[in-house]
């Protein structure tokens, strides 16, 4: 940036400006401290409620017990986490490939989009839990079953966002490309795909969370059929055995995974867009 930034402290500030600086500093600290404090308070309250009401551990375990279980059952739980993660990432990968691939196909012609977009919508709006029995009949392989399920849940936001992005290119830039004799491929590669990037990344952020949900839900409805024992299976199993601490531990692992996926994709989005897109720019002034 070429803008001149006055060094903090060297310029005497008027009261209004000083107030603004103070407020900004407070906000920066509060952004982290407040949610953390509320979280700690909630956990403490959870613990107190267990103690005050003498709730048995198989109904609601104390937080400390859950953490202990996370440690003692680590081998079991993290093994299952890996199984769930594998399905999640594979389905996210397929959702990206399928979503972007279909979007590019749709962008080739209005007719293709008009013809096939309704199918994508139908696939999206039909609850996956209701469709799963069918998948269960037609697909034998357990992994394929779960993947298909998670994919159906995750691909739509990528498809719809990328389609929107590919179609929202500045008309003048399209004219410029035509003027310079650009081929369809050049127009796609040098213009439409980069222009769709922010939209795609927005869809990816949603799809990341959805593929985890898809993976867990798929495993739930698929049932604990032995070999594939992801975190969902652990939860069901723990439920049957009234092993509430392990159930909670598994639950915490799942939501923690979701948070990590979201943060990672947010970071990716920021890194890709930081040099040019409005959404990634730090507010100045």
């Amino acid at each position: 940036m070429t803008a001149i930034e006055p060094q903090a402290g060297t310029v005497p500030l008027d009261p209004e400006e000083a107030r603004r600086v103070r407020a900004a500093r407070l906000e920066r600290i509060g952004k982290w401290v407040l949610p953390l404090a509320i979280m700690v308070l909630a956990v403490w309250l959870w613990d107190r409620i267990c103690v005050w009401n003498e709730i048995p551990r198989y109904i609601l375990p104390r937080p400390g017990e859950v953490v202990a279980t996370l440690y003692t059952d680590a081998g079991l739980l993290f093994g299952s986490l890996l199984v769930t993660l594998r399905i999640t990432f594979l389905s996210l990968l397929l959702a990206v490939a399928g979503g972007v691939g279909l979007a590019v196909l749709f962008a080739q012609s209005k007719w293709v989009e008009m013809s096939f977009f309704p199918f994508a919508v139908i696939l999206q709006v039909t609850p996956i839990v209701a469709v799963f029995p069918l998948i269960n009949i037609y697909v034998d392989n357990q992994t394929a079953k779960l993947l298909l399920c998670a994919w159906i849940v995750a691909f739509f936001p990528i498809l719809s966002n990328t389609t929107l992005g590919l179609n929202s290119v500045d008309r003048n830039l399209i004219d410029l490309f035509r003027l310079n004799g650009a081929t369809r491929w050049q127009e796609l590669w040098h213009l439409r795909l980069p222009a769709a990037m922010p939209y795609f990344l927005g869809g990816l952020k949603i799809a990341g969370g959805l593929s985890l949900i898809g993976a867990v839900v798929a495993e739930f409805v698929a049932g604990t059929s032995g070999q594939s024992s992801g975190l969902a299976s652990r939860i069901i199993e723990a439920g049957y055995r009234l092993n509430a601490p392990r159930l909670f531990a598994a639950l915490i692992l799942i939501s923690f995974t979701g948070i990590v996926i979201f943060l990672a994709l947010t970071l990716v989005s920021h890194l890709v867009l930081r040099r040019w897109h409005e959404s990634a720019l730090r507010q100045e002034r």
Binding site: D170, N172, L173, D175, L176, L179, H190, P194, H277
Partner: peptide
């Protein structure tokens, strides 16, 4: 030929990326 023409639009119309 097409390359005989340069075009400048009302907006700068640059590739932002």
């Amino acid at each position: 030929g097409r390359s005989d023409i340069g075009f400048v639009f009302q907006e700068p119309t640059l590739l932002p990326w």
